[in-house]
């Protein structure tokens, strides 16, 4: 499997860091980071991204608003989005699914497990 390019949009720098380290270490994928919704949208528009990990709870522009924005641009509308959330409830998950997100990963997570979880959600063939 080719090296995937993952964009993590999270206002927490430590999350960006552990996600970046974990994914790189576990699967060798490239991880791009953004600290806010607008910054993330910019990156997604300018870079070639395979999947966006989007934190739901962010100040100013939250994950849902960012998601809607991403869907408005032709360059980004096709990119699969996976929500990172502290809200793990079924009803919320269903709500997110209804929005058209590809999946939900609940915090706290182990960043080393992320490539596996992402591949499972997006039905990627993960190199063992």
């Amino acid at each position: 499997m080719e090296v995937k390019r993952v964009l993590i949009i999270d206002d927490e720098e430590s999350i960006q860091t552990v996600v970046k380290f974990g994914i790189a270490m576990a699967a060798g994928w490239e991880v791009l980071t953004a600290s806010s919704g607008p910054q993330g949208i910019d990156t997604a528009q300018s870079e070639s991204i395979d999947v966006i990990l989007l934190d739901v709870m962010m100040p100013e522009m939250d994950g849902i608003a960012t998601f809607h924005a991403l869907k408005t641009y032709p360059e980004t509308e096709e990119i699969p989005v996976i929500f990172l959330t502290a809200k793990a409830q079924t009803a919320e998950k269903n709500h997110f699914n209804d929005l058209g997100v590809s999946g939900v990963i609940t915090k706290p997570f182990n960043s080393l497990d992320l490539p596996g979880q992402i591949s499972k959600i997006l039905h990627w063939e993960l190199q063992s």
């Binding site: 552990v18 380290f21 502290a86 706290p108 997570f109 960043s111 080393l112």
Partner: peptide
């Protein structure tokens, strides 16, 4: 509180797991 704990926990958890490798 729970929600706010989750984010730092995620960082700690992941960081420790990475260290443990």
């Amino acid at each position: 509180v729970s929600h706010e704990l989750r984010t730092p926990l995620t960082s700690m958890h992941s960081a420790l797991k990475i260290l443990a490798t």
